[in-house]
Amino acid sequence: MATQTALLAAARPLFAERGFNAVSADEIVRGAGVTRGALHHHYGDKRGLFRAVFEQVEEEIVQEIADVIAAGQGDLFPRALTAFLDITERTEVRQIAMTDAPAVLGWQTWRELEAQYGLGLLITMVEASPVVDSTRPAPMLAQIVLSAVVEGALLIAYADDAAATRAKVESSLLALFGDLLPE
Rank of each mutant, 00 (worst) to 15 (best):
G31R: 02
P13A: 03
A10P: 00
K46G: 03
R18V: 04
Q73E: 14
N21D: 15
R36A: 07
A167P: 09
S134H: 15
A163L: 12
A159T: 02
A163V: 10
V150F: 15
A70I: 09
Q63C: 11
F15K: 07
L146K: 05
M125R: 09
F177K: 08
A159Q: 15
A101G: 00
V34G: 03
F54Q: 13
T88L: 00
D75S: 11
L154K: 13
G31D: 01
V34I: 04
V132H: 06
A38R: 07
L146I: 14
A70R: 13
L81H: 00
F77M: 05
P78V: 04
R30Q: 12
E170V: 09
E27N: 05
E55I: 03
F84T: 02
I65A: 09
I156R: 09
P130T: 12
L141E: 00
G48Q: 04
G74D: 07
E112R: 14
M1T: 04
A80P: 02
L121V: 02
P78T: 00
V132M: 07
R94W: 10
I28E: 03
E27K: 07
E64T: 15
Q4K: 15
L181F: 02
F77L: 13
A70D: 15
L85S: 00
E27R: 05
T82S: 14
A70L: 11
R94V: 04
D75L: 13
V104K: 06
R79T: 08
F54P: 11
A101L: 09
D86I: 05
A153E: 00
D161R: 04
A32S: 10
G178Y: 08
I28C: 06
E17R: 10
Y43M: 00
P130V: 04
R51K: 15
L105E: 07
E17F: 08
A162H: 09
P139Q: 08
T165V: 15
I96T: 06
Q63K: 14
H40P: 14
E114F: 06
V169F: 01
A22Q: 10
E89R: 07
V29Y: 08
D100G: 13
V62M: 14
L121I: 06
L81R: 00
P139V: 10
L155R: 13
Q63P: 09
P139W: 14
G33C: 01
V131W: 08
D133Q: 02
I156E: 01
L173Y: 03
D75I: 11
